[in-house]
Design a protein around this nucleic acid. Structure first.
Lengths: 167, 167
DNA sequence: TGTAGAAAGTTGTTCGCGCAATCATCGACG
DNA sequence: CGTCGATGATTGCGCGAACAACTTTCTACA
């Protein structure tokens, strides 16, 4: 009779509701140190990339923001001194966004609270076995909905820094 | 050495990545019938509520949009004839957003594709046992991060429609 | 009953993001 | 080696949402 109570719909709703709820919790910690959600996302992606750098377009691909969005986010972060733009030595069209020391410091400042939030509202609520299974399931889905989430990491790690180990 | 590769951080990233990815997939189906993501969210919440109606503020609470955001979304949907505003008989400050027949039809139009997407990119990827455990975990987290996700349902179902079953 | 504070909803303002157009550069092909 | 399509990044523009201020109405308390 009611075509709108399909269990798949409920499952989908549950998933986005949880993700949104956790995002809201995290948001509060981010604003406490003067970062927006996308600021944090951008900085953490850089921090977890080889040599703390990523090309603008790779950053866009990883964050599911548009390239123009990334341009403006990096503009803002650069004004605050949290990232630096650096020219690519092999492709004059491209440029890297590089995490600065200040950017890393800012990240370190939020990290304890942020990790505590995740523990309190997510990982700590499940048993180790539950959590492990949960993450396995997430990975299965991630591999299907997001085939290229690790774009750019091999590039950044393999490319030589100018003057460093000059072949 | 690297304080940014904490497994909790990875877990969080995985979760939001999956949710975002699925949202993007759904977005394509929604735009095909002329709905934005929030349009769909709003309509489906109304459809799944008793008497297909919800007060503006309850709608805001359920969708994690601000009340001003809901005002404008309902403005738009009302212009398109998908919802109707209706005065509350017991509180002259409040008003209901009510799903119209056209709104229900629009929802029915997207539903097959949307359910198919969910099946393809989410529920169908896991075994029944995996899915069941996954949803259990989600519910555990949801209950903590979103204690009042069902605001307004008992109100809408218990309140009498004017002229209907008068006392 | 009258007044003060809270709550529901709308509106003005601001800001962030996506889309499309643009510029510069790269790679391929004749 | 020159030309053309493709790619990386940036900017103009418009839309959509949050925040705060405001209006109306309700509720509590004296």
């Amino acid at each position: 009779m009611d075509p709108f109570d399909d269990p798949r719909l409920t499952a989908m709703g549950l998933l986005v509701e949880v993700a949104t709820g956790l995002t809201v919790k995290a948001h509060q910690s981010f604003t406490a140190v003067g970062l927006s959600d996308v600021d944090f996302e951008t900085l953490i992606r850089l921090a977890r990339s080889p040599r703390q750098r990523l090309r603008m377009s790779d950053l866009a691909a990883q964050t599911s923001l548009s390239t123009s969005g990334i341009t403006r986010v990096v503009d803002r972060l650069e004004r605050e001194g949290l990232v630096m733009r650096e020219a690519c030595s092999t492709d004059r069209r491209a440029s890297y966004a590089v995490l600065t020391e200040a950017g890393a410091e800012r990240l370190k400042a939020v990290m304890p609270q942020h990790l505590n939030d995740i523990e309190t509202y997510f990982t700590g609520l499940l048993t180790p076995q539950q959590l492990s299974d949960f993450l396995d399931a997430l990975r299965i889905i991630r591999d299907v909905v997001r085939p290229c989430a690790t774009v750019g990491v091999e590039r950044a790690s393999s490319e030589q820094c100018e003057g460093e180990k000059v072949s």
